[in-house]
Computed example of a mutant assay.
Amino acid sequence: MAIESLPLPPFYDPEAVGTVYRVPYQQRAGEARAWAVEHGIRPAREDAFRLGLVLIDVQNTFCLPGFELYVGGATGQAAVEDNRRLCAFIYRNLHRITAVLATLDTHRAAQIFHPVFLVDDEGRHPAPFTVVTVEEVASGRWRFNAALAGRLGLTPEAGQRHLEHYVRTLAERGKYALTVWPYHAMLGGIGHALVPAVEEAVFFHTVARHSPPELLVKGTHPLTEHYSALRPEVNTDPDGRRLVEPNDALFEMVRTFDAVVIAGQAKSHCVAWTVQDLLDDLRAHDPSLAHRVYLLEDCTSPIVAPGADFTEAADAAFARFAEAGMHVVRSTDPPDTWPGFPAAFGKESVSHA
């Protein structure tokens, strides 16, 4: 019979998930070791069935009310509710999760999707959520901010040429036009950090299972967007030179682990595009590996805002992923009941002595 899920540790407070607080690391470290002893939890290196947990951009900037790109969803509490379930999933399955990989959307002010990168004829920057089209760049409605050129290692002419190349490439791919986002996920700022409650759960797992997480930084290049954790939206300059090396950490986790669970924000954007790029890579190498991927549908939400409800697009993406062989599951269901998992999943990570 499969080992039952673990209880939630006494310090976990679901009401604190939507707040910023300092994680008491030393205290939690001692509690994690005691928790492992109390429940007979073995080190992750002993796992016979290796389960990876991937957290996509579970950062304050996306997940806490009042921050820059909060994913409130239809209820206004979507990301907070998602993270309550996510924290509970981590704690209840501490003995099952072998390793955690967390992506971190990481930006500076002067990037192609932030207001200061662009100016009009009077030197004014576009407002957040402005959509910049090929026609507007060609007509001079929006131009590269030449004052940034030296700091970005460009000439004003090269910066303008890249902007024209960038919006044209996006248009040719038919995905979307360049969107000017509010300044968000700023490196060194509080918005960039993992949500404290999730960070606390990951830290607790690290100590209890002797398994440090992998933190995957994305989005630092000033001349491209990086929604997907695998590769940027446009990865060449006007002369065809590569901007960013693709990151294969997620692909390698799927290739080398028995199962990989994915959660995070937002379902309609960074989660959907990361999973789509992952699926494309799996199809190119071994399509059967798609069956190792599990999507926590109750730990991710689409962007819903006035005039921009991406729920339908997000649901359609998850339907495509399921059709390709990935599994759409719920965090509240024990993993040993998920399709494709061994009946006694988890018991090898717990001592019965």
Rank of each mutant, 00 (worst) to 15 (best):
residue 113 F to P: 00
residue 64 L to S: 02
residue 237 D to Y: 11
residue 167 V to L: 02
residue 282 L to G: 12
residue 37 V to N: 10
residue 189 G to F: 03
residue 265 Q to C: 03
residue 213 P to D: 01
residue 236 T to S: 07
residue 189 G to W: 00
residue 55 L to M: 13
residue 321 F to C: 05
residue 216 L to E: 04
residue 301 S to V: 10
residue 328 V to K: 09
residue 174 G to Y: 01
residue 161 R to M: 13
residue 62 F to E: 06
residue 96 R to E: 04
residue 129 F to S: 04
residue 226 H to R: 06
residue 151 R to Q: 15
residue 131 V to R: 07
residue 263 A to M: 14
residue 39 H to Y: 15
residue 238 P to N: 06
residue 335 P to M: 08
residue 263 A to L: 10
residue 241 R to G: 09
residue 50 R to E: 14
residue 164 E to H: 15
residue 293 V to D: 00
residue 48 A to Y: 00
residue 136 E to H: 08
residue 327 H to Y: 14
residue 342 P to E: 07
residue 294 Y to D: 03
residue 237 D to A: 09
residue 277 D to Y: 05
residue 300 T to F: 06
residue 237 D to M: 09
residue 103 T to A: 03
residue 245 E to Y: 07
residue 236 T to Q: 06
residue 95 H to W: 08
residue 242 R to Q: 15
residue 21 Y to R: 12
residue 204 F to V: 00
residue 225 E to S: 04
residue 178 L to P: 03
residue 327 H to V: 09
residue 236 T to L: 13
residue 89 F to V: 06
residue 41 I to P: 02
residue 318 F to G: 01
residue 121 D to S: 15
residue 226 H to M: 06
residue 190 I to Q: 13
residue 335 P to K: 13
residue 129 F to V: 12
residue 20 V to G: 05
residue 83 N to Q: 10
residue 104 L to H: 03
residue 122 E to A: 15
residue 45 R to L: 01
residue 113 F to D: 00
residue 103 T to E: 01
residue 175 K to H: 14
residue 89 F to W: 07
residue 100 V to W: 02
residue 220 T to F: 01
residue 295 L to H: 05
residue 267 K to M: 05
residue 149 A to H: 02
residue 16 A to K: 15
residue 59 Q to T: 01
residue 174 G to R: 09
residue 138 A to N: 08
residue 248 D to N: 12
residue 152 L to W: 14
residue 169 T to Q: 14
residue 222 P to T: 08
residue 205 H to I: 01
residue 258 D to I: 07
residue 249 A to D: 02
residue 284 A to Q: 13
residue 312 E to S: 11
residue 85 R to M: 15
residue 322 A to E: 08
residue 164 E to I: 15
residue 174 G to A: 06
residue 92 R to T: 14
residue 316 A to T: 04
residue 75 T to V: 11
residue 85 R to Y: 01
residue 18 G to S: 06
residue 247 N to D: 10
residue 249 A to C: 03
residue 293 V to T: 09
residue 171 A to P: 03
residue 122 E to P: 02
residue 4 E to S: 08
residue 83 N to D: 10
residue 40 G to T: 00
residue 312 E to R: 13
residue 311 T to F: 08
residue 251 F to Q: 03
residue 169 T to A: 14
residue 101 L to N: 08
residue 273 W to Y: 14
residue 50 R to M: 15
residue 232 P to F: 02
residue 341 F to A: 05
residue 259 A to S: 06
residue 159 G to M: 06
residue 12 Y to T: 02
residue 212 P to T: 04
residue 129 F to D: 08
residue 18 G to E: 03
residue 319 A to Q: 13
residue 243 L to R: 09
residue 2 A to I: 07
residue 281 D to E: 10
residue 81 E to M: 12
residue 245 E to V: 11
residue 25 Y to G: 03
residue 342 P to Y: 09
residue 221 H to P: 11
residue 65 P to K: 03
residue 93 N to D: 06
residue 326 M to C: 07
residue 311 T to Y: 05
residue 228 S to Y: 07
residue 318 F to L: 07
residue 47 D to P: 03
